[in-house]
């Protein structure tokens, strides 16, 4: 069962999560009662890394036009900064007393805080990246919504010109996202939906062309219109399913049944 929903987040957090768990277990089993070594240097390395993350994080916030990211990311940065301070305090306390129990608690609290804060930050960033893909998906939905008002060949050519780059981007982004996910069921749904969209797109265009040609010839267009609408609706459903799955981050037990 995957704990982290993307491979990138997993590769960043898993090693530290394992180490923190070990420390917590040692503490809970009261096997950490011996003298602690001098932790000044590793704590300084964490402090420097945190200072860099805060700098890079603020730049990301300032350069982003995603209001949700701008609103949520500062709290994650503060959490990491606060945790870093706890580690510095723990190190100072352990220097004075290598057997200090409050220092050990601070060390654990700090390490957990770094893990939690970094996790929140990565999730915040990841959700923002997902929103970018969803924005592209919604552009495709907007184009599909106007498929039924296309009545001339000129409009159809423009429709294809507008839709094609959007579909290409969605296809590329969803394909890359699918490869990033750790959850196999979510990956499979994205692959299936994307394949359907790729298959349906040329059929829809063909259906629209038939409708436009029949209309130009003054022939009956009821069936051609129904066919076109059905294909547009199918594509809309597939894109909506992609949007739904892109937003899933938690493990859903039922989906494995």
């Amino acid at each position: 069962m995957p704990v982290f929903h993307t491979k990138t987040i997993e590769s960043i957090l898993e090693p530290v999560a394992q180490q923190v768990s070990r420390l917590v277990i040692l503490h809970e089993e009261a096997e950490d009662g011996n003298a602690m070594p001098n932790l000044e240097r590793p704590v300084l390395a964490v402090s420097n890394a945190v200072a860099n993350l805060v700098k890079v994080g603020r730049e990301t916030i300032n350069n982003s036009d995603d209001q949700i990211l701008r609103q949520e990311m500062p709290a994650s940065l503060q959490r990491v900064e606060k945790a870093s301070k706890l580690l510095e305090e723990a190190s100072a306390m352990l220097n004075a007393d290598p057997y200090s129990q409050p220092a050990r608690k601070k060390l654990i609290e700090g390490a957990r805080g770094i893990l939690q804060g970094t996790s929140n930050l990565l999730l915040c960033f990841d959700e923002s990246e997902v929103r970018k893909i969803i924005k592209e998906c919604k552009k495709v939905l907007d184009y599909l919504a106007v498929a039924e008002v296309i009545e001339t060949m000129e409009d159809l050519v423009q429709f294809v010109k507008d839709l094609s780059p959007c579909l290409t981007k969605v296809s590329r982004d969803v394909d890359a996202r699918e490869k990033e996910l750790t959850h196999m069921v979510h990956r499979e749904i994205l692959v299936r939906c994307l394949d359907s969209v790729k298959t349906l797109a040329p059929i829809l265009i063909c259906g629209m062309k038939i409708y436009v040609q029949l209309l130009a010839q003054g022939k009956k267009v009821d069936e051609a219109g129904e066919n076109r609408n059905y294909l547009a609706a199918r594509m809309t459903d597939e894109i909506n399913e992609i949007i739904r799955v892109l937003q899933l981050t938690t493990y859903d037990e039922d989906e494995w049944d």
Partner: peptide
Amino acid sequence: EMILDAAKSITIATAALVKAACAAQRELV
């Protein structure tokens, strides 16, 4: 993305710190 690299640096540094704390305990227990 730079933010991912920065986050990675933190977790590597924190893992090293915690590992040092754990290792010292195990040696002495």
